[in-house]
Nucleic acid binder design. Sequence first.
DNA 1: TAAAAATGTCAAATATATATTACAATGAAA
DNA 2: TTTCATTGTAATATATATTTGACATTTTTA
Lengths: 77, 77
Amino acid sequence: MVKPVKEAAVRNKVKIARIEKGNLTQGDLAKLVGVTRQTMNLIEAQKYNPTIRVCLLISKHLDCRLDELFWIEEEEL
Amino acid sequence: MVKPVKEAAVRNKVKIARIEKGNLTQGDLAKLVGVTRQTMNLIEAQKYNPTIRVCLLISKHLDCRLDELFWIEEEEL
DNA sequence: TAAAAATGTCAAATATATATTACAATGAAA
DNA sequence: TTTCATTGTAATATATATTTGACATTTTTA
């Protein structure tokens, strides 16, 4: 009896929320949050795992609740 | 005319939420989340800035919404 | 009370988030 | 088309989140 392996993948809808907000480029948002455009690009591409500080600042500047922007997707492998 | 410097300090109530949940040590929570006890200790002491992945797992195991657990406190310095 | 469990903390090592610089690809506007 | 803004991405460097191992202090429990 083997426990099923669960992959806890972090997902986000930063890109969607930024575009919905309108008139805000990756570079704009990055500057507001205080990270580089490249970092924001990787976050939007869900290629890494930002710190809570950056997430909270994104949430604030996009007027979108933290737990609407970021969630965990459990997948059995 | 100088813009007032704002410090965006990240705060959390992980320790409070863990104790409210009851019967769960730092070590227990750390193991559930998949970090060391030392890391959980530092997070609870608000001495650093965890990744969103760790925050989401804490939120899940404490049954406490992400944006109730973590927030930004704006302070003028 | 003593013993055990839980917590706080330190130093050193490792992993990884983020910065920097640069350039190619895409899309919008002229 | 050509130009310009935006986005995707790569390599290397730096900062810091996290680990490991250890020990002292505090809290709980017998």
